Computed example of a mutant assay.
Amino acid sequence: MTNNNKITKRPVALVTGGRRGIGAAIVLRLARDGFDVAFTCRNEDEVAQQLCAEIETLGGRGLAVASELQSLEAHAELIERVQAWGGVVDCLVNNAGIGSPVRGDLLDMKPAAFDQVLDTNLRGTFFLTQQVAKQMIQASSEQPRSIINVSSVSVEMASPERGEYCMSKAGLGMATKLFALRLAPENIGVFEVRPGVIRTDMTAGVADKYEQRFKDGLVPMGRWGETSDIASIVSALACGQFGFATGSVIHADGGLAIPRL
């Protein structure tokens, strides 16, 4: 983590869950495209510090902040730390989230699992966005401002064996619309990116299963999505290239979610 607190003219992005996978790809792409990037993680460990070092090789500054999204009490401290480091947040990327603790029969879902997933993926994301949006409105910035929710094809595609996850993502889809309407007069764009099957450490354990499903036609493009596919979309949105398209949903799934006969 850099200790340089000098505020630069580069726009500042905050990426939740930015330590690995899709989040890390987004962090590095934003840095490459001109942002200073703060990101949340569970631990400010060697992996997080290495990511900060990579950001610096791309000409930006990086800040890793250990923060739990589901802890609403931690949001104010997170925002204060980022502001002290880099100033106003110009772009919030809501990437952090968890999957279903146990996949199984919808009729066997436990309240604890429901609460755990909804508290993180929806409740935590909603209230962090609320706080960052207030800060964006109160502080002036010459940079394009945006909030980008990284959700899932599960917003619309139902998987009964992981119902709590699907419900959390469906709620995030509505939150995108609500924030887009509320923040449009403030010239803050709000967008949603819905990844499909993406090659990450989290999907490595089921890689063989998906390889066969690709051959069977699950994804029309016939391949894995890569973390770079998601990162390039997020960066284009963050850079203000689609500002008038606020509220839009980008399907980043190789055609997976297109209804077919």
Results as ranks from 00 to 15, higher is better:
96 A>R: 05
240 G>K: 07
71 S>H: 14
261 L>A: 15
56 E>K: 11
132 V>P: 01
157 M>F: 08
29 R>V: 04
17 G>W: 00
79 I>Q: 05
13 A>F: 07
232 S>G: 08
240 G>M: 05
15 V>A: 07
235 S>N: 05
110 K>T: 15
138 Q>V: 12
53 A>F: 08
159 S>T: 12
85 W>N: 08
115 D>M: 08
129 T>Q: 14
222 G>K: 02
128 L>F: 12
67 S>T: 12
163 G>I: 02
140 S>R: 15
221 M>F: 14
5 N>M: 14
153 V>S: 03
110 K>C: 14
152 S>L: 04
93 V>W: 07
249 V>C: 03
37 V>L: 07
105 D>R: 01
176 T>C: 11
55 I>K: 01
31 A>Q: 00
66 A>T: 04
70 Q>E: 15
175 A>F: 03
35 F>P: 00
224 W>R: 00
48 A>D: 04
151 S>K: 00
240 G>F: 10
8 T>V: 12
114 F>C: 10
10 R>A: 15
178 L>K: 09
240 G>C: 02
207 A>C: 04
177 K>T: 14
191 F>A: 10
115 D>R: 15
94 N>R: 04
74 A>I: 07
256 L>T: 10
170 A>I: 07
58 L>Y: 05
139 A>K: 15
37 V>T: 05
182 R>Q: 15
88 V>M: 11
133 A>G: 07
261 L>W: 11
104 G>R: 01
101 P>K: 01
184 A>N: 12
168 S>G: 01
104 G>M: 01
21 G>E: 03
66 A>E: 05
50 Q>E: 13
231 A>N: 00
207 A>Y: 04
128 L>Y: 13
167 M>P: 05
111 P>H: 13
118 L>F: 12
42 R>W: 02
214 F>N: 02
96 A>P: 11
32 R>L: 13
108 D>A: 15
31 A>K: 02
250 I>R: 00
39 F>K: 03
224 W>T: 01
119 D>Q: 06
35 F>A: 08
158 A>F: 11
194 R>M: 05
254 G>W: 02
49 Q>W: 09
143 Q>P: 11
93 V>D: 03
101 P>L: 01
2 T>N: 14
181 L>T: 12
166 C>P: 07
15 V>F: 08
254 G>V: 03
160 P>M: 04
226 E>T: 07
258 I>K: 13
